[in-house]
């Protein structure tokens, strides 16, 4: 085990964590401000990836595709909010889960009807191809760019929430919904904007990750599960919690897959160690979630004190 390998794995964990953050930020915002559980968040991730792949395929320009992916996810988010979600705020969580689960099925089937069942492909933009030398290790330039993107968006989101009028309204909405409506804020509009913002972040994550993965129907659901783990660990409704939770999950998952098989290999034979290590590594983040729930039932950074 060399320093180069450890560094590469830490970078991999960070990159994974930051992409998870983009997903979880929207999810946690929507839950925090509107008290809504949105299972269809993963579908917005898928929509972002598909639109990016389609537009990039036609125009040959990744960045145009990326814009299209974000715009399409935001538009789909706003539309879903106005048509469906708006009717669910007053209902209990089970109704919300039921309705947004139905949305997953509708959106997946819709995307399949439009794009077909086969995976699409999206190429990494030419300027981000290849590797970059980081002293002791050659690292994929695109993954490094993803880390940069993730940090930039996190910074932008922080500025938006703490430094703008919209941010004040969002924070107010989190702490007291009735009060800000009474103070004359157009709460309906605010909800639509927050939902579209969350959708845009999911679409951005889908489009960015789509370039190094398979753009396929149902690609959002595995990420959605991880995003829920992240917001449970971080504290539901807290952007800061989402950031910390995402980085924890990203790094722990990656390092678990990296270190656990090695640990078991010290006293088991290789094949067995790989099997046991891989199995345990895939449970690690859920164990982390269970631990957090035991000691901090509201997550690491509870939004509502």
């Amino acid at each position: 085990m060399t320093l180069a390998l450890v560094l590469e794995q830490v970078l991999n964990g960070l990159q994974f964590g930051l992409m998870l953050f983009l997903m979880s930020a929207g999810l946690t915002l929507v839950f925090g401000v509107m008290g809504l559980i949105n299972l269809a968040h993963g579908s917005l991730y898928m929509i972002g990836a598909f639109c990016c792949a389609a537009i990039a395929g036609v125009t040959g320009n990744f960045w145009l595709g990326l814009m299209a992916g974000i715009a399409a996810a935001a538009a789909a988010g706003a539309l879903i909010e106005v048509l469906v979600i708006r009717r669910l705020y007053a209902r209990d969580h089970l109704d919300q889960v039921l309705a947004t689960f139905a949305l997953i099925l509708i959106l997946s089937e819709g995307v399949r009807m439009i794009f077909g069942p086969r995976p699409l492909y999206l190429n990494v933009p030419d300027m981000l191809r290849g590797t970059v030398n980081l002293g002791i290790v050659d690292y994929s330039l695109y993954r490094l760019a993803l880390i940069g993107f993730g940090l930039a968006v996190a910074l932008g989101l922080w500025a938006l929430i703490t430094r703008t009028r919209l941010g004040i309204q969002i924070r107010a909405g989190e702490s007291d919904r009735e009060m800000i409506a009474a103070l004359g804020v157009n709460i309906r509009w605010l909800y639509t904007v927050v939902f579209a913002l969350g959708a845009a972040l999911a679409g951005l994550a889908g489009a960015l990750v789509g370039a190094i993965q398979s753009v396929q129907v149902g690609m959002g659901e595995p990420v959605l599960i991880l995003a829920f783990v992240v917001i449970v660990i971080g504290g539901i409704g807290s952007i800061k919690g989402a950031m910390v939770g995402a980085l924890l999950v990203g790094v722990i998952d990656t390092m678990g897959r990296f270190l656990l098989p090695r640990f078991f290999a010290t006293f088991l034979d290789t094949s067995q160690a790989m099997g046991v290590g891989a199995a345990l590594a895939s449970m690690l983040i859920y164990l982390l979630m269970a631990l957090v729930l035991i000691f901090r039932p509201k997550g690491l950074f509870p939004a509502h004190g």
Binding site: A4, L5, E8, F16, V209, T254, F258, M274, G275
Partner: peptide
């Protein structure tokens, strides 16, 4: 000889950790 042997998860989408192992 086997330089290494790895099991991944079914349906896994990110192989950064595995690629780093192969490299090393």
């Amino acid at each position: 000889e086997l330089a290494g042997e790895l099991f991944t998860q079914v349906g896994q989408t990110d192989y950064a950790a595995e690629i780093a192992e192969i490299r090393a």
